[in-house]
């Protein structure tokens, strides 16, 4: 038993050095050498200041910005330090009520728009930090953003198209629009 104990402890420590120190430090080295921007959080700058990460969504509530997915993080939406989904079950009345409120808020910000709300704008994302919305959700908001900024909807549509990604390699995932990047492009193009 004594031999076994020594073998277990020493081997455990040896493998810990390999997998818990050497391996993550090697990956960190590779990351900082080959992918420094992404490895440090894909930070985005505007006018020389860091304004966020292109991978982490932000709360947008002003009509002149595109809004992202509803976020269930607490105490406020898009709290990057506490990622979470709503975890509301499909038959939970709170889920339906939340969807109704989101629809009402979208309608209130854009009274003339009677189109049905794309489902991703009425439901909370898994991480609470989803940086993207569907092209349908962007199209739904084009009229409101154009009006708030006093520009032609087609001008906004162009920016949406320029910030839309298709399925990766044509197959994987879903088409999507990065909300922060789109809003930054809007601020640049339409003052």
């Amino acid at each position: 038993m004594k031999t076994l104990l020594r073998q277990a402890i020493v081997l455990f420590l040896g493998l810990t050095v390999l997998t818990g120190i050497a391996y993550p430090l090697l990956v960190t080295g590779i990351a900082q050498a080959a992918f420094p921007h992404a490895a440090s959080g894909s930070l985005v700058e505007a006018n020389g200041k860091v304004v966020g990460s292109s991978l982490i969504g932000q709360a947008f509530t002003e009509p002149r910005y595109f809004w992202g997915r509803p976020s269930a993080t607490t105490p406020a939406a898009y709290n990057a330090a506490a990622s979470t989904g709503s975890n509301q079950g499909p038959t939970n009345p709170a889920l339906t009520d939340a969807a109704k409120q989101r629809i009402a808020a979208l309608r209130q910000a854009d009274p003339g728009n009677s189109a049905p709300v794309p489902v991703d704008l009425a439901t909370a994302s898994a991480s609470g930090l989803d940086p993207e919305i569907s092209p349908a959700a962007a199209e739904y908001q084009v009229g409101r953003v154009a009006k708030a900024r006093g520009v032609a909807p087609d001008k906004v549509r162009e920016l949406v198209a320029a910030n839309t990604k298709g399925r990766q390699f044509g197959v994987l995932g879903e088409p999507r629009v990065n909300v922060l990047e789109l809003n930054l492009a809007l601020d640049q193009a339409v003052r």
């Binding site: 989904g85 709503s86 509301q88 499909p90 794309p118 489902v119 439901t123 994302s125 999507r176």
Partner: peptide, 20 residues
């Protein structure tokens, strides 16, 4: 709500799911 799958969106039950 429009939850129909199309070229513009995945549709379906998007609660607790990520757009990508």
């Amino acid at each position: 709500i429009d939850a129909q799958a199309s070229a513009m969106q995945a549709g379906g039950n998007m609660e607790g799911k990520e757009t990508r």
